[in-house]
Structure formats: structure tokens, C-alpha cells
Nucleic acid binder design. Sequence first.
DNA 1: CGCGTTTACGTAACGCTGTTCACTCAAGTG
DNA 2: CACTTGAGTGAACAGCGTTACGTAAACGCG
Lengths: 223, 223
Amino acid sequence: MTPATSPTAVPAPTSVEPAARRRARRGEGDRTREAIISAAEALLTASGSEDAVSIRAVADAVGVTPPSIYRHFPDKAHLIFEVCARHFDAIDAALVQPILRAGGDPVEALAELARGYVRFGVENPEHYRIMFMGHADHTPGMYASERVLETGSFGGTAQLVQRAIDAGRLRADAGDAVLVTYVIWAALHGVVTVAVSKPNMPAPPLDAQVDAMIDTLLHGLLA
Amino acid sequence: MTPATSPTAVPAPTSVEPAARRRARRGEGDRTREAIISAAEALLTASGSEDAVSIRAVADAVGVTPPSIYRHFPDKAHLIFEVCARHFDAIDAALVQPILRAGGDPVEALAELARGYVRFGVENPEHYRIMFMGHADHTPGMYASERVLETGSFGGTAQLVQRAIDAGRLRADAGDAVLVTYVIWAALHGVVTVAVSKPNMPAPPLDAQVDAMIDTLLHGLLA
DNA sequence: CGCGTTTACGTAACGCTGTTCACTCAAGTG
DNA sequence: CACTTGAGTGAACAGCGTTACGTAAACGCG
């Protein structure tokens, strides 16, 4: 099930097919809820488009009727954002935390985190788009900004930046930790965003982009 | 505003209100086409959401029926992308070309271009989102990648980077012009993207973000 | 056992969307 | 005049998110 090719790949796309269902028992409503999330996740990864994840399509895949979805989620946005949030929880556990625990050279750790983050983004483009490229008005409040700041990649970057500062590895006039973190994260976010939104653009290979970006951020361009 | 009570009142060009219309004459179909674009532009900027620019809303604003739109545009995507493309043509003429013609210090020119580009993005968030943050499958082919590469900001950045290289201002191992341009543009794109998509995120002021990004790209972080 | 409450779900429908088909109406041409 | 052609309508289709309302099944309790 777990594709060993990537540590940032995430759960199991179950089946998109319809399902023979019994009515859930009294306390087992959460089982239906999980089935809905699994079906939405499968539809999203299989189609690569949020448009394919309609309430009706999810309901068909689960084997219930459209209004039943609303007994488990207040609206479509909450459903689809919960699907994506699980992906970002997974990357936190699979990529960020191991790097933080390893505790090696903070600058090298930053580079490794950057590469993993970008790879995660381009391997889960629709999840990334929903989470970080949508309209703020369409984003459930609980996911609006917290997920960005507390999410593994940003928080992990902040910790590594602080370690680098503590170790005296950064220039004195580089700015405070928050600003440095923001710069690094926004730059990587830019790489992911353009790769996700313009996949056919004639661009340097992704690895070259990330390496050049990291190298430029760390060493600068000027002679 | 003056209440236009006259039944023969001429419709205001950029109004979102309904319009008293005559049927266009034989060769004057392009006039209707322009009215459609103006109405879509007005709806987009007034609402700040692509969702408000429905075919029916545009048709009502122009004073025609929905199917009439399709005599001038193959589908909604072509209409809304043409609206946005005009914005990006405008920034090319108003921001990029003057900087290129000024011909001052290329590094300072890059910083000035960066600040202008980011400001344009956050001042026209929905246009920016449609142009650069949408799904590739929803983007008309003619706007998919050309607009990114040939657009003023990217092409202008490339020219300034080349000037900086020619003037010996960049490090020898900074990479070729294409890669350097891509890095700079992607980083700025990241700043715009997160500002557009997460406007309520507790972040450093935009000017500080841009200055820090430019300074970091040029001078680097490491001691 | 049986009653009543609660949870899980279905049926039907509303208002909206982008889009298409078939039609009309007016203007310019030979 | 007839004829063509460009501009615009009216009605409709299929799909969307969402809601109001009815119903069936499982549980606690007397």
C-alpha cells in the first residue's frame, strides 16, 4: 500500500466504486463519516480535480444519498478541507518530525526539508491547491491561517531557522527568525505553486529549481 | 451619482447595472464584445470573486441574454482569461517597460520591478488567482504557459538578470540566466500567492516581506 | 414486552450554474 | 424585390450545493 518511492505519499486511495451498504447502527455514524472521507479522498486523487469531488459523486461512491453527507459535514468545504488536512498531518509526521528529531546541521536540515516539502506539493497538487491556493472566503475558518502557521512545514522551518540562528550560522542582518522563516517558506511555496498551476511550463527540472532556490537563499546572488 | 431617468440614457461603460441596449448593427458585434469584457471586468473587481462573474450576471449587466455571450466567446474561461490578460498587458506597459527603458543599475531595477510586481498582484488578487493559480485543465491553451513566459514581469526579469550578468554583478556560480530568473520570479510569485490566498495570515508587512526576499536572494543568508 | 426518543438516512425539491438547440429579427447586398 | 448573414432570444438540459421534511431502525427505560 505504501509506495516506497516517496516518504511524502499519503494514505490509501480505497475504491471509487459504489458500495453495498447496510444502514449504520446507532453509535456507528462515524464509520459512515470515515467512508465519506475515504471516498472523497479517492475521488480527489483519482481525478486530480476538485470538480470531480461533487457531493453526489461522493454519495454514490459511499452508497448513500447526497443529503446524508450533510449529517456528517456542515458543507462541502469542510469535507474537502478535512481530506486535505489529513494529508498535511501525514507530511508532518513522515517528513518534518523526523528531520527535526535527527538534529543534524540545521542548514542541511533546512535544505532537506525544502526538498521534501516541494516534492510533497507536486505529488499532491490538488490537495496543495485546495489548502494553499484557494479563495480565503471559501476556506473554513479553522483552516484559514492556523494550518499554515502550525503546519509541520512552516513550524518545522521556523524551528530549524532558530537553530541556525542560535548556532551563529546566519548573517547578523538577515532579519529575525520570523521574517527569515517567512522568506524561505514563501519562496518554496512559489516553486510549488507554479509547478502545480502551470505543469506544462517549459521550466528547469524541479530538483534544479529547488537546489537553485535553496542555494540562492543561503548564499545569495551578488558577487 | 446622477440618477439617469431618461429612457435613452447612455449606459455607463464600467457599470455593473443593467443597460439599455439597441441591437448592434452588422459590423458592430465587436462593440458588444467589448461591453461584455467591460461588464465582466467590473463584476470581477467589484465582487473580488470569480464566482460572481457568472454568464448570467455578465449578460444582465450588458443587457443581453446568456446565449449571446457565446457568439463572442467560446466559453466562460476564454472570457474571463481575456479580462485578466488585459490587466497583465497593462502592468507590462505601465511598470515593466518603463523600468527596462530607464536602463539604470540592473540590480536596483530588479528590486524595483519586484516591488511593483508584488504590489500589482495583491492589488488585483482575483485576476492574479485566475491567471496564475488556477487548474491547468481549466486554462485556455493560449494562456497556459505563454503568458507566464512572455509576460512583462517574467520577460522583464529575464532581461534585467541578463544585464546584471553582463555587468558582472552576479556570482559566477549563480547559474545561468534562465535559472536565476526562474528563482527570482518563483520567489516573488510565492509572496504574492500567499498574500492573495491567505490575506488574514499574521505575517510581516508586505513591504518587509518583499524587501527581505529581495535582500535574501541577492545577498543570501549565511554568514 | 412496548413506548418514546434518538440517530441515520431517503425523497423531493429549490435555485443556481455553464452550455446548446432551434428560432427570430434586422440589416446589408445583388 | 429576394437572399444571405450577423446578432440576439426563448426554452431547455444536465449538473451543482443545499434544504425541508418524512421515515425506518436501533437503543434506553418502564
